[in-house]
């Protein structure tokens, strides 16, 4: 097995060969499923997720099988004036090294769902669709760290694809620190975009921002870390979010451009302004 994260100090290289401020290779596609209202596929390193968005749709007869969903954007009742953002996550058994059957109502999954739901509700113009539901269905195909960030990014892309009006992209990434909490090394470098091994061994947080602004939409930190190191981690994370936004934006514009060329959509007024190259 390769070295662990403690080897960073030897040559300022992380376990996978990255520097402290580098994202993993990020790859994304939108409109992966033509039949869906909106869909996307996203990879951050070996973390691979898929997203399908349905809606906004008026409430019909209650569909079964959406047991483990979380919703945000105001009260979840149909009387609400805002649309409900319902998120469901399915984790494939083969997605991690330890093949295990995810239990229904797994606490961690419930928490991810509710975090994503409220994060998106902050950007989507839910007030435009009263009494309706936006269903976001996420599938985790492979896990290698930064799962929450990947899910948020995929959901954002799928919502764009679905054409739901939103303020800006909600983009997320993780940040960490090169030394453990116990080692208490004040001079530890912050790290951008943790993979699974780093998540296991080092302190880390997930941050999501609203597009190019510094407005933080999500901040989750589940590990123990000295408060003095937090600032550096957060700064690196927010900077990472901006890089992620560039990448997502490029994916959307590329797809738009290609669709124009293929004649899938008619050249509309707005699309002319897009810089496509």
């Amino acid at each position: 097995m390769p070295l662990d994260t403690s080897a960073y100090g030897l040559a300022l290289l992380r376990v996978d060969g990255r520097r402290w401020n580098e994202l993993r290779r990020m790859h994304a596609q939108i409109r992966t499923q033509a039949a869906a209202d909106g869909s996307s596929y996203l990879e951050m390193g070996h973390t691979k997720v898929m997203c399908v968005v349905t809606g906004p749709s008026e409430p019909g007869p209650r569909r079964g099988g959406l047991g483990g969903t979380a919703s945000g954007g105001g009260a979840s009742s149909a009387q609400s004036k805002d649309a409900e953002v319902a998120v469901s996550i399915v984790v494939a058994g083969f997605s991690s090294v330890d093949r295990k059957r995810p239990g229904r109502g797994d606490k961690r999954i419930l928490e991810l769902q509710s975090t994503i739901s409220s994060a998106l509700a902050a950007s989507l113009h839910t007030h435009l669709f009263p009494h309706s539901t936006i269903s976001i269905s996420l599938h985790v195909l492979s896990q290698d760290g930064s799962l929450l960030a990947a899910l948020i990014n995929a959901a954002t892309l799928a919502c764009v694809d679905a054409g739901i009006p939103m303020t800006d992209y909600v983009v997320a990434c993780t940040a960490g620190s090169t030394s453990t909490y116990a080692a208490n090394d004040e001079a530890a470098d912050p790290l951008l975009d943790l993979n699974h091994q780093e998540e296991q061994e080092l302190p880390g947080l997930t941050v999501a921002t609203l597009g190019q602004t510094d407005r933080v939409a999500v901040l989750v930190c589940e590990s123990r870390v000295q408060v003095s190191r937090l600032e550096g981690m957060l700064a690196v994370g927010v900077d990472g979010c901006k890089q992620v936004r560039e990448i997502l934006d490029r994916v959307v514009r590329d797809k738009g451009h290609r669709m124009l060329l293929e004649g899938t959509v008619e050249r509309g007024a707005g699309l002319d302004d897009m810089e496509v190259d």
């Binding site: 097995m1 390769p2 996978d16 060969g17 580098e22 290779r25 070996h46 090294v97 290698d144």
Partner: peptide, 21 residues
């Protein structure tokens, strides 16, 4: 990089790691 490791309980695990050159 693909590693195969067997755990204490006798399970065999396949681990795929990315390497950035």
């Amino acid at each position: 990089k693909v590693y195969v490791r067997s755990t204490k309980s006798g399970k065999v695990q396949k681990i795929v790691r990315e390497v950035y050159l």
